[in-house]
Design a protein around this nucleic acid. Sequence first.
DNA 1: ACCCAGGGTCGTC
DNA 2: GACGACCCTGGG
Length: 292
Amino acid sequence: MKIYEKNNSVIVEDMKDFDPKHIFECGQCFRWNEEEDGSYTGVAFKKILNIKKEDNLVYFNNTNLEDFHNIWYKYFDLDRDYSKIKEELSKMDKYLNEAVKFGYGIRILNQDEWEILISFIISANNRISMIKRAIENLSMNYGEYIGEYKGKKHYAFPSIEKMNSLTQEQIRECGTGFRDQYIKDTTFIIKNDNEDIYKYKNLDTDMCKKGLLQFCGVGPKVADCIMLFSMEKYDTFPVDVWVKRVMEEFYVDENLSLKKIREYGINKFSNLSGFAQQYLFYYARELGIGKK
DNA sequence: ACCCAGGGTCGTC
DNA sequence: GACGACCCTGGG
């Protein structure tokens, strides 16, 4: 893997296990959007980044080597050997083998805990397009302006302080629906009980989940997502409608509870559960597996 | 026009 | 544990 900077871009040669479409459309993030040229533009950690893959080159546009090493290397989990993970999962069974082949370029992002906490509270009983819209509105109305790219203005996700200053109505006007109160209550707990969301990743998975469940609007599934997508907890297995469908299709009886499906997944995939879940989710959703 | 589902959670029983 | 309600809206 060769990395170099050129004209406000960082170019990486021969990058393995990295496909922008797989990464940004496997349901782990909500702030990345496809451009007309097939590239993806997104906002994270108050930076605007554009990514385009061409043959054996990956272009990280609108950035430099310093940010690449300080921010994006960790964000895209580039230190982890996904070939090894895929190899281990592939030999478990034929279904996972197919799912891994399908989403070969997936990487699990290391996103900001606060942003992911609120984002996945919004995700409950909601659709991805609606979730993205609500998060975009919150950022546009109450987030810090961070610049313009390809003719579009971009805003950071609102800070804890800013969110805490909003009324329930202001939050709802962004399109959160009935989750407005959850967001308000959760933000209040973090701000006024001095609850440090950034210390959670230091706890073991069980304690971490226990802590997250205290927040309003955070149930078992949302807690699993927060841990997996922002706290490096990979021995967890978020079960949503799609994972339920694909698990019932390939592994378990119907009428098994969500909790039991989660236990089954963690027992079967152990410390690779989170990765397995993500390959299965992307596979199921893209192919519509189990949908009626 | 009407109905339904969407990366579930909460309150109640 | 099981059940219904829940803001909103695109798609059937």
